[in-house]
């Protein structure tokens, strides 16, 4: 349980948000060209990082907008929040 600083509404309880999982997984541009291995990679394989992870959240019980969060999954500390389409902060790579 933690607070998330929604870029549109400000700081709210985590229970107002729904987690969208790992961020920056790009939808295949030409799905028909994809091999089974590439589909598996896109659909199912996840980094599931213990440490600094880039992820998507949706303020489902608030503004209902999507945005990105950088969070340390080993202690649930949020390091950065940025809007969809913005470049991910480089200092956490």
């Amino acid at each position: 349980m933690f607070l998330i600083n929604c870029p549109f509404c400000g700081e709210r309880d985590q229970s107002e948000f729904s987690s969208g999982g790992e961020a920056h997984i790009v939808r295949p541009k030409q799905p028909t060209e994809l091999s089974d291995d590439e589909w598996a990679e896109y659909l199912f394989m996840r980094k599931n990082i213990k440490g600094v992870q880039f992820e998507r959240w949706n303020h489902i019980h608030g503004c209902r907008k999507w945005f990105n969060v950088v969070r340390d999954t080993s202690n649930d500390k949020i390091l950065s929040v940025y809007k969809m389409g913005e470049k991910p902060p480089v200092n956490y790579k």
Binding site: M1, Q14, S19, N48, T73, D76
Partner: peptide, 13 residues
């Protein structure tokens, strides 16, 4: 909880 975490605690809600 709905999110990835390695914190062995979980949310109160």
């Amino acid at each position: 909880d709905s999110y990835v975490s390695y914190t062995q605690r979980g949310s109160h809600n």
